[in-house]
């Protein structure tokens, strides 16, 4: 029997969908070991966020309201305190999840299985699968400490659906941490967009260095994304050059995505980029160079100048949509 604690990820007082990937993991492990899972809703807006999570089958929801923006040091002592008595503590493998869980694990000298893609129970023990070497090696591993900390890949643990019911919500007292005084949160600047979020989108239009400017990115990539109802993503080169915000970077350093359709436009397909998107179902490349390494993973490859091809594609997609 393994009891699991899910650490919810809050943003602007609401749950991010990432939390539901961690819930999916928790359900799977609870079921396989006849255990139960609880959820810790922690941070600013924890109370409202706890209500949002009441219908997912948790035994109970712990709620700790902590004011101020995100810094792990503000939350980690409480997470570690709440973790006692559980076999596994889990969050999504986002910047938030990795930063916070490793810090909390450190307080308990607990082992971490980071960014796992699968879990199974073998002889009563949890065995994790995780990609390494930018996705070029798949490892199986265990955590050998009494409490195990785990972060899960959103691309491999599909967001749990609501299961009905209403989990009871309990307050859990925040635990102070001296070290938190040494960080002062200022602000969190987010680029707001009407488009779907990158990690949740069914279709992604990603642009690379070949776009050459922020304006080109807006004039060429955005209209195609809008015609497809897609999210916009980018390579590191495009983010570094400031064509788009850094949080649109896909790859080993950026976000992991696995949409139904991924269009790589003017992206060469470096190993570090492939690491973030090769789980996509259908991959389309538009590139002048038919030898570009993106060909290793592309299902469809249009050898063309993107400045001709993409506007034409945008028109064709619109026409298809009106033809219904």
């Amino acid at each position: 029997m393994t009891d699991i604690l899910v650490v919810a990820e809050l943003y602007e007082g609401k749950n991010r969908k990432t939390t539901l990937s961690a819930v999916a993991f928790a359900r799977q492990v609870a079921e396989a070991t006849s255990g139960a899972f609880d959820i810790l809703s922690i941070g600013e807006g924890a109370n409202a966020a706890a209500q949002e999570l009441a219908g997912f089958g948790a035994r109970k929801i712990l709620e700790t309201e902590i004011a101020g923006g995100y810094v792990a040091e503000n939350l980690a002592a409480t997470v570690a305190g709440a973790a006692k008595g559980y076999g596994v503590v889990v969050a999504a493998g986002t910047a938030y999840g990795k930063d916070l869980l490793s810090r909390a694990a450190g307080k308990l000298a607990a082992g971490v299985a980071p960014d796992i893609s699968a879990v199974r129970v073998d002889g009563g023990e949890l065995v994790y699968t995780r990609p390494m070497y930018a996705g070029n090696v798949i490892a199986t591993m265990k955590v050998t400490t009494p409490i195990q900390f785990v972060t899960v890949r959103q691309t491999d643990f599909e967001a749990a659906a609501a299961s009905g019911g209403s989990s009871p919500i309990e307050k859990f007292a925040a635990q102070a941490d001296e070290v938190a005084k040494r960080l002062r949160f200022g602000s969190l600047e987010s680029v707001k967009s009407e488009r779907p979020e990158l990690t949740e989108a069914d279709v992604i239009v990603a642009g690379g260095r070949a776009l050459k400017s922020e304006d080109n990115f807006k004039n060429v990539i955005d209209p195609l994304a809008d015609a497809l109802g897609a999210a916009v993503g980018a390579s590191r080169a495009a983010c570094d050059a400031g064509y788009v915000a850094a949080d649109l970077q896909i790859g080993q350093t950026g976000k992991l995505v696995a949409p139904k359709l991924y269009l790589a436009i003017g992206i060469s397909g470096a190993i570090q980029h492939l690491a973030g998107m090769k789980g996509s179902k259908v991959i389309v490349a538009i590139n002048k160079d038919k030898e570009a390494p993106i060909a290793q993973v592309a299902d469809y490859f249009f050898v063309a100048d993107l400045f001709d091809a993409v506007p034409a594609l945008t028109e064709a997609v619109k026409k298809l949509a009106t033809a219904g």
Binding site: A109, V127, I138, M141, K142, T144, V284, Y300
Partner: peptide, 29 residues
């Protein structure tokens, strides 16, 4: 003491299917 234990390593499955090179936007769509 170690906190994790690696048990085994394998290579990931290759992406199935070949790349289809298309000649035009219409063909791609």
């Amino acid at each position: 003491a170690a906190s994790v234990q690696y048990i085994a390593f394998e290579l990931p499955p290759a992406r199935s299917g070949n790349t289809v090179f298309v000649e035009s936007v219409d063909e791609l769509v």
